[in-house]
Design a protein around this nucleic acid. Structure first.
Length: 536
RNA sequence: GGCCCCUUCGACUAGCGGUUCAGGUCACCACCCUUUCAAGGUGGCGGCACGGGUUCGAAUCCCGUAGGGGUCACCA
């Protein structure tokens, strides 16, 4: 039998990291065994149904690169893949259990059930349906149903003994049948409950391995009983540990950001999120900590799941993201993802190489795409604003800036080495510390003191921009560095939404690594076009 | 509370009876590099929950205790 797994989310709120997590493991398992991975929408709860959620969950998986072989959007031979479109199937199956005496119609109202629970509580008795509906005769059940009296269908479960199942990761788990109280299979609105729909669909869709979260362990015996009632073969059950909040409780919106969309908006990369999620309760056989989805599939071994509930650590997620940004993805790839975000802010550029240079120096200083674009502003606008520390540097560096303006204007080879030599020679001639000269220059060029190496900045910005910015800084100094420097107007281009004008920039993070040799462009035309290591 | 599951550094984990006075990563600290901020390099801090067994030998197996989590709906 060919392996089949599934992810079966409910279309309620935001696409959840837990759904991504369980989806990832189902996907990896199916792929590693040459099986099918099914997406099934469990939309049987009309109260909590959210019309937009289905598309958003699908988008989430698309973004993550986890593509189902079957699902509502891709089809497949065992659909439909929305439970709301399978109502007739569930009704027929419920009917089958009714006909074979394995289920019965129960007519208690919600109020009656509440009263029952209240009474149980008062007496200190175990909570749960007491099976009173079994007393109603078949004839009466059918008669009342025929008269349209609202009712549910319940499974008859054994009162004694216990029901056990094998969990691939935990071994045998058994629960006394007394704990299981005739669960509802079909609600009074005619919709199936999770238990019925899930079992019926898993069977009909040929699911061989049920990989789901640990929270389902205690209801698995219900499913076992259902499989038996239908006379079906059991699938393998694999219960993954629950992702945890920092306080160890199961991940929740209240205590943690659980929305995958929100991580995307924060500039988290799908590869990084996936890699991070894969390390939650699982490890590569060879101990690698950075690996792609394909790598994971190639090395997948369900036996390597560890059962302690892993805490979802934002810091580590960000670390993974930073790692992907600077080491795993190519420079070109990062630039490709950054470009649209810059344009959204109304920032633009003419030269692809310029963008690559900017990303190159900025990415070691960024943890997320958003960090990166937050720090990139001065590369894309001439309206440089000076933050507090920058003002101090400018005020102290007027002389150096004047000198450097002159020196740069006559510098013939405006490439990395040329600039670097000039700067060093100048500093030496002045016999002062590097910082004395370079900090004011950095401030003039970027408006901040936290930025990439000055030689990089100068080289990337190019002669024309550098001279202009030094000139600007000098005139600002002459005007006493007015504190109410006009807000940067954000150079709103197409798609600009005014976001260009933001509060004080976060300290830029950048790259000091020596640039490639051979920057050839000595002209004033700014946009640096240095040679770049094609290895990227 | 009943039931079920889980338990290696603050966090993620490796370890599946002996080659481990427990290894790696994040975080944290220090130092190095250094014109700022990062990145990078080096080092450090820090753990087998506890108690009984089993065994020549236990982080690894068993039992108990404690702790954590989940679940007890006409939600999934």
């Amino acid at each position: 039998m060919t392996v089949a797994t599934r992810i079966a989310p409910s279309p309620t709120g935001d696409p959840h990291v837990g759904t991504a997590y369980i989806g990832l493991f189902n996907y990896a398992f199916a792929r590693s065994r040459g099986g099918r991975f099914i997406f099934r929408l469990e939309d049987t709860d009309r109260q909590r149904y959210d019309a937009g959620a289905e598309a958003r969950i699908l988008e989430m998986f698309e973004w993550l690169g986890i593509r189902p072989d079957e699902g509502p959007d891709v089809g497949g031979g065992r659909g439909p893949y929305r439970q709301s479109e399978r109502l007739a199937i569930y009704r027929e199956h419920a009917g089958r259990l009714l006909a074979t005496g394995k289920a019965y119609r129960a007519f208690e109202t919600p109020e009656e059930l509440d009263a029952m629970r209240t009474e149980q509580k008062r007496l200190g008795r175990p909570l749960g349906y007491d099976g009173r509906g079994r007393e109603v005769s078949r004839e009466e059940q059918e008669r009342r149903a025929a008269q349209g009296e609202p009712h549910v269908v319940r499974l008859i479960t054994p009162d004694d003994g216990e029901t056990a199942f094998q969990d691939v990761l935990r071994g045998e788990v058994s629960i006394r049948n007394a704990e299981i109280r005739d669960p509802v299979l079909q609600k009074s609105d005619g919709y199936p409950t999770y238990h019925l729909a899930n079992v019926v669909d898993d069977h009909l869709m040929g699911v061989t391995h049920v990989i789901r979260a640990e929270e389902w362990v205690t209801s698995t015996p219900i499913h076992v009983l259902l499989y038996r009632a239908f006379g079906w073969e059991l699938p393998e059950f694999i219960h993954m540990p629950l992702l945890r909040n920092p306080d160890k409780s199961k991940v929740s919106k209240r205590k943690l950001d659980t929305s995958v969309e929100s991580y995307r908006l924060q500039g988290i990369l799908p590869e990084a999120l996936l890699n991070f999620l894969a390390t939650m309760g699982w490890s590569m056989p060879d101990g690698r900590e950075f690996f792609s989805l394909d790598d994971m599939v190639a090395g997948f071994d369900i036996g390597r799941v560890s059962l302690g509930g892993p805490v979802f650590d934002l810091k580590k997620l960000r670390y993974y993201n930073a790692k992907y940004l600077r080491d795993v993805l190519s420079l070109e790839e990062v630039a490709r993802r950054i470009a649209p975000l810059l344009r959204e802010r109304g920032l633009d550029w003419n030269d692809q190489d310029y963008l690559l240079d900017v990303v190159d120096v900025l990415r070691p200083r960024a943890e997320t795409l958003v960090d990166l674009i937050d720090a990139a502003g001065y590369f894309f606008t001439e309206d440089v604003r000076y933050d507090g520390p920058a003002r101090k540097q400018l005020a102290a560096g007027q002389k150096y800036l004047e000198d450097l303006e002159r020196e740069f204007s006559i510098l013939e080879f405006f490439d990395y080495d040329g600039v670097d030599d000039l700067l060093h020679d100048y500093v030496q001639a002045q016999s002062v510390g590097m910082g004395k000269v370079l900090q004011p220059l950095r401030a003039a060029l970027t408006g901040t003191t936290n930025a990439p190496g000055v030689t990089d900045l100068v080289t990337i910005l190019g002669k024309r921009r550098v001279l202009r910015r030094i000139g600007q800084a000098l005139s600002a100094i002459n005007q006493g560095l007015p504190d109410d420097n006009p807000q940067r107007s954000g150079e709103s281009g197409p798609g600009g939404d005014g976001k260009g004008a933001r509060g004080p920039r976060k300290p830029g993070k950048g790259e000091t690594q020596a640039r490639q040799q051979g920057r050839q462009e000595g002209t004033a035309a700014g946009a640096g076009t240095p040679k770049r290591d094609p290895a990227g």
